[in-house]
């Protein structure tokens, strides 16, 4: 079995003439806390959607937990927990109903799914009543999504901006849970625009820009020369975008 949780070679995904992912190479070791960074539109979400089997790709090879894509879809899906950028939540279910439903869809029997749903609701301080997810705040929706990703005890977590809209207490809880998952041997692959969070949590980082990996390594390797991760990130993805470098914007 491959020692990498995710192994991607020469991945390409085009939307018409535009390459969303353009020859991407990526290795995510098992048991790592992996930060996947990039500016808006760099191809992060597309990559996650490919890794989860949500969208097909045009070229390249993808292996997740030792199973190839396409082909190993069902085996991969059984083993991953997903917190996507777009909601996978069914609005007309309550949090408890959704978590139980998700558990059963991942093969848990009903009593076990109900038990875990109750425990997760309690852990994430979500309403146990019949309040529908449609009435939840953005932060609560993220917490339900996070809880659902945990219900079947996955080996790999794919998380697209998991802390977005979550309050400080909720975010702290989520970080603690993710660290515990890594400690038990699971792999966490997350994207975030909050570089301080990535810097603190992730042992390995890759920066994607215009569909290609622009830099990869441990946090320490990337931050050589005393730079912060933000400095590295801005330098790599294009300092020309900075306000100081723009002309004709005196009015701003």
């Amino acid at each position: 079995m491959s020692s990498d949780a995710i192994l991607v070679r020469g991945l390409e995904k085009r939307y018409g003439p535009k390459a969303a992912v353009d020859g991407l190479d990526l290795e995510v070791p098992r048991g790592s806390f992996f930060g996947f960074l990039g500016p808006n539109g760099a191809g992060k979400s597309t990559t996650i959607r490919i890794l989860t089997g949500l969208i097909p790709f045009d070229r390249g090879t993808v292996e997740v937990l030792g199973f190839p894509l396409p082909g190993g879809d069902l085996e991969i899906k059984r083993r991953i927990g997903l917190v996507p950028d777009e909601s996978l939540l069914f609005d007309r279910l309550s949090g408890a109903e959704y978590l139980e439903f998700a558990g059963r869809m991942y093969g848990l029997d009903r009593p076990a799914a109900m038990e875990r749903a109750r425990a997760l609701l309690d852990l994430f301080e979500l309403p146990a009543g019949r309040k529908m997810i449609a009435e939840y705040s953005k932060g609560m929706r993220k917490r339900v999504a996070m809880a659902a990703s945990l219900v079947h005890h996955p080996e790999l977590f794919l998380m697209d901006e998991p802390f977005e809209g979550v309050d400080a207490v909720g975010a702290r809880l989520m970080k603690d849970i993710l660290l515990r998952q890594v400690a038990r041997g699971a792999t966490v692959f997350l994207t975030s625009h909050v570089l301080e969070v990535v810097e603190r949590l992730c042992d390995r980082v890759a920066i994607i820009n215009e569909g290609k990996i622009a830099a990869a390594g441990t946090s320490e390797e990337l931050r050589s020369g005393g730079e912060s991760l933000e400095d590295v990130f801005v330098r790599i993805v294009g300092g020309g975008h900075l306000l100081a470098a723009r002309e004709g914007l005196e009015w701003l």
């Binding site: 949500l54 069902l74 085996e75 996978l88 939540l89 609005d91 007309r92 991942y106």
Partner: peptide
Amino acid sequence: AFDRSAAAFWFVTPQP
């Protein structure tokens, strides 16, 4: 129709 964007759920769970 009612699943809307959550229809993606059907494709990320290990069920045909």
